[in-house]
Amino acid sequence: MTGMTTSARLRLVAPVAVLAVLSLGPVVRLGGLSAGAVLVSLLLWSTALARHRAPFPALVVAVVVLGAWWAGHGLEPQRLLPAGAVTLWLLAWVADRRPAREVVAATAVVALVPVTLAVLGLLGRPGGEAVVPISAATVVAVVVGRNRRTRRSLVRALEDRALRAERERDAGARAAVAEERTRIAREVHDVVAHNISVMTALADGAGYAIDTAPERARAAMGQVAATGREAITEMHRLLGVLRGDDEHGAPAPAPGLAQLDALVEQVRAAGLPVVLTVGGTPSPLPATAQLAVHRLVQEALTNTLTHADGARCARVALEWTADRLQVEVTDDGRGTRPRDPDRPPGHGLVGMRERFGAWGGTVETGPADGGWRVRGVLPLAPVPGSGVHA
């Protein structure tokens, strides 16, 4: 009992002490109380102190002590001590805590008592009438112990299932948070990087023209202000979606294919001529798919403004077929400008691939025809029974 708390010791010893005292009552009433009976009774009940750690060895010891006492008194049924009930208690503990093979062995050990009584009955000695109740008590002890084991296993399984469900829910929540953070970062990058790149290009042009062409410089600065206001509007839209703030009405819709003309005009105003062409017959696209196309074009043109050295023009081509939409953005830049070491690397290409990947599409980037090309392919899977592409 080393290391046990006081309450644990009390729960271990108290039932044994109470049952030991109660078991002496019938002995007193039958007039068989003696020092030996008291000693053996206490010895029998003391084996129950090991019921938690070693119930099977404790049961074997109890049966041996009981059998020695009984055999020493001529196997007379009336000499069976009431304290022998400890064997049934220990049998229930074995059935509850130990594997099946030990349960079978323990049952066989306890069954020695009714078997002996049955043999004595066949030999014409008294005691045969006790075979049935003792056998029934043995079976009840086994059933009670196994029932407790089954119930405890069920409770443990339910607790494990609840814990597993909680862990899965927490993992799902963390994954959802991570996905939302990625989405927010992608949206902020798309909005801020593009507009700031356009504003930078316009401001650079205004700086060059302020002395020689002040009207053009003034117009460029006006375009800077307009682009800044547009960026603020986009940020308000994005933050409104994140907050779920609808007190000023429904948020502005996300940019899509209809806004590509305005995007191209904005880049043209920043000093980069852009040609937009559309081939084939357009098909209906969900809003998020249109947003993916818009952001790809926006990121590609932003990279041309920011990184393409000597780019004089860019081309945006949308080619519709029956089963896919191909978006291609090319420029004639000779190479990439040296990256500002104070500027962290961007995640625009990753964002483009993630957006198209969500719709089963692909994005390829690389040099082409002396410039740079970004090509995205978006499959158009028809919705069954509707004729509408998604």
Rank of each mutant, 00 (worst) to 15 (best):
M1H: 04
R11W: 12
L12K: 07
S23I: 06
G25W: 15
G25K: 00
V27W: 07
S34P: 07
H52M: 00
P55L: 02
P55C: 04
V63S: 00
V65K: 03
L66K: 00
W69K: 04
G72F: 14
L75Y: 14
A83F: 07
G84H: 10
A85M: 15
T87C: 09
L90N: 09
W93S: 03
E102S: 07
A106E: 07
V110K: 06
L122S: 04
G124F: 09
G124A: 03
R125T: 03
E129F: 09
P133Y: 06
I134P: 03
A141F: 14
R149W: 12
R152M: 05
S153T: 10
S153E: 11
L154E: 15
D160W: 10
R161M: 06
A165D: 15
R167W: 11
A171R: 15
R174F: 12
A175W: 14
A175N: 11
A178P: 07
E179R: 15
R181A: 03
I184L: 15
V188D: 01
H189C: 02
D190K: 00
V191A: 05
L202T: 02
D204C: 07
A206G: 04
T212P: 00
A217R: 02
A220W: 04
Q223M: 09
V224F: 09
R229H: 14
R229Q: 10
I232D: 05
R237V: 03
L238C: 09
L239E: 15
V241Y: 13
V241K: 14
G244P: 06
A252D: 07
G256M: 02
L257I: 05
Q259C: 01
L260W: 10
A262C: 05
V264R: 06
V267G: 04
V267T: 02
L272P: 06
P273M: 06
P273F: 02
V275L: 14
L276H: 06
G280A: 04
P284Y: 08
A287S: 13
A287P: 02
A289C: 03
V293Q: 10
L296K: 12
V297L: 08
E299F: 00
E299V: 12
L305A: 04
T306Y: 08
A308F: 07
A311Y: 02
A314Y: 04
W320R: 11
R324Y: 01
V327K: 06
V329L: 08
T330L: 14
G333E: 01
G335M: 05
G335L: 07
T336A: 13
D340A: 06
D342Y: 13
G346I: 09
G351Q: 01
R353S: 13
F356L: 15
G361M: 04
G361A: 03
V363Q: 06
R373E: 05
R373L: 11
R375G: 01
L378C: 01
V383F: 00
G385P: 01
G387D: 08
V388G: 02
H389A: 12
